[in-house]
Design a binder for these strands. Sequence first.
DNA 1: TGCCATACTTACGTTGCCGTAGGTTACGGG
DNA 2: CCCGTAACCTACGGCAACGTAAGTATGGCA
Lengths: 225, 225
Amino acid sequence: MMGDVAIDGSSSTSGDKPRRGRRVRMTGAERRQQLLDIGRALFAEKGFEGTSVEEIAAKAGVSKPVVYEHFGGKEGLYAVVVDREMRQLLDGVTGALTAGHPRELLEQAAFALLDYIESYTDGFRILVRDSPVAQSTGTFASLISDIATQVEDILGLEFKARGFDPKLAPLYAQALVGMVALTGQWWLETRRPKKAEVAAHLVNLAWHGLENLEARPRLVGHRRS
Amino acid sequence: MMGDVAIDGSSSTSGDKPRRGRRVRMTGAERRQQLLDIGRALFAEKGFEGTSVEEIAAKAGVSKPVVYEHFGGKEGLYAVVVDREMRQLLDGVTGALTAGHPRELLEQAAFALLDYIESYTDGFRILVRDSPVAQSTGTFASLISDIATQVEDILGLEFKARGFDPKLAPLYAQALVGMVALTGQWWLETRRPKKAEVAAHLVNLAWHGLENLEARPRLVGHRRS
DNA sequence: TGCCATACTTACGTTGCCGTAGGTTACGGG
DNA sequence: CCCGTAACCTACGGCAACGTAAGTATGGCA
């Protein structure tokens, strides 16, 4: 037995394929992280139900029980992946909000979301897809919709300051997030135009409206990427 | 045997529950339609993979093979449901576009989409969810994204007339559709404010932008519902 | 150098569901 | 009234995937 196991020392943590090499023995934390990475990629590609535990384990070069040891099952792994991704996105967006002027705020938020989409494409795909089963409490259908509720607060403040009805903040928050989210999804396929340009146009639309659209919008803030 | 089958004559086509009554013998077309209705509802609630053929058949008060006779399998049924729903939506939207003035056009489109969401909630839920498996050609992830491409044309014309780059039409189309779609999804849960008001606010945002937002927007067109 | 905890395995039981083979009932026209 | 066809059923084969029980290797540390 064991004749089918070759010898291979390379054990880059981010190895994707079975890497059927000499049994790589990782530390718990390493393996856990690796499984999360692989799980994220697979869930993004094939959805929750379309991904099997076997598949995840195989790609990690281990057997199923390892996954169960670490996460207790598929749902467990998925939950951790989603949680981390939500944090990542929220941190990115809220961290980008430094401006005081509403327009710059909008600009920063849009850019941050696109940034996230670009850097963590798989995570975004997961957040856009629907969760395992219609969750218990009758919460939102889309994880992204969840994100939008986080935007409400900022908008609510702004509305109050401007004398608008703050009860409408959720509506506008959903609208804005939806705008960026679907555009982001579309942008994933085409990758054109450039991120900054897309952001500029989104801000153009959200800020000026179709009525006063600018032909060649620019971002007012300066950015690195 | 058969002691578990009670007697019941009522056979409303839109019967939802097993209706375990005296064997209701429908004509082919009737059964087909009923299966489509039930399938739509179940797919909307639990997604494609989460719905079993058995379940569909059971709710229709028949056994599995009937479903296979009519649609050849789960995918077949799903395909028909989606196709019909796409048509329904597209017809509704394009049919509503009668105005010449862009703003009214926008208004009509937004209203039509909300109309569809209200009247064909299940269908909308399906279109928002992702399709069975990542479809072959690498097409769009979301069916809704598909809808957006249909909007491009109208927007493209408008852009040309206004001297903007028509290549940007897709981007703005996605943005607009995303805006309405996610807001619609959110609105499904809360159902407040009223449809017309939601439409008015969406148009308010899309047309005037955050910069010149009106406090109490009104729809300019007159509507019945 | 021997031991023990940790990382990992093989092998299996079980379930749920797809899809099909082949038989059965009822309705309607001759 | 009879018979063919359309509608429908029971029953099963097969597979893929979840999750678990029980055993094996490995590497650090006394």
